[in-house]
């Protein structure tokens, strides 16, 4: 059951302005499978869910963050070692979408491409008051390499899909990272050989070193 090495644990950080429905989104997602009994013992704001994707079991730890502006600077503490980020905005509030754009910029700057991004436009049940067009948001998401989903925590729409896509991508990314790391480790011998080259051939050592790494 438990995982000694924590290899299947994935951390998703929830970002977005206050009151866009971050928490209700996750509650809706996690509650559907959590039994009532478990609910009462947890009694906290930490939510996790175990899902099976193909052969992979993964434990999603979903970290809620405070959306108030005064806590904005704390972002890095939360997303530092996250595998994925779910950026939530309110489709009836353009400002919250602008906030998401800020988060994306910050995340790409601070943690680069390592983190999987997913943007969720929440409250589509309030379609009459919609201010952020779906096409606009999708276009933006594509331009920054993020998923985009339309959700409604109230109606339970689009939520499973959001987390599933996020989970799949995170698994993919981790496998990629692992293989890249093992490649780097096996390639770790190359520089030693290069050093030997270096002493005999002089300057050409650096070039052959970079070649060895690319292989």
């Amino acid at each position: 059951m438990a995982d000694v090495r924590g290899k299947n644990n994935y951390k998703i950080v929830l970002l977005g302005e206050g009151r866009v429905g971050k928490t209700s989104l996750v509650l809706r997602y996690v509650n559907n499978t959590f039994s009532d009994k478990q609910q009462t013992t947890i009694q906290a704001s930490f939510l996790s869910k175990r899902i099976n994707i193909g052969e992979n079991t993964c434990n999603l730890a979903i970290w809620d963050t405070a959306g108030q502006e005064r806590f904005h600077a704390l972002g890095p503490i939360y997303y530092r070692d996250a595998d994925g980020a779910l950026l939530v905005y309110d489709t009836t509030d353009t400002e919250s979408f602008a906030k998401v754009k800020n988060w994306v910029k910050e995340l790409r700057k601070m943690v680069g491409q390592e983190i999987v991004l997913c943007i969720a436009g929440n409250k589509i049940d309030l379609d009459k008051e919609r201010q952020v067009e779906k096409s606009e948001a999708e276009e933006y998401a594509a331009s920054v390499g993020a998923y985009h989903f339309q959700t409604s925590a109230k109606l339970g729409k689009g939520i499973e899909e959001t987390f599933l896509a996020l989970a799949k991508k995170m698994i993919e990314q981790r496998q990629e990272n692992d293989s890249r790391q093992s490649a780097r480790r096996s390639g770790g011998n190359a520089p030693i050989l290069v050093v030997a080259d270096d002493t005999s051939n002089g300057g050409s050592g650096a070039a052959s070193g970079s070649k060895a790494c690319n292989c």
Binding site: K22, T23, L27, A44, A66, G67
Partner: peptide, 12 residues
């Protein structure tokens, strides 16, 4: 009302 407290409420 809820069994879960949001971070918006918790952190302050």
């Amino acid at each position: 009302l809820h069994t879960t407290v949001s971070a918006d409420d918790f952190l302050p």
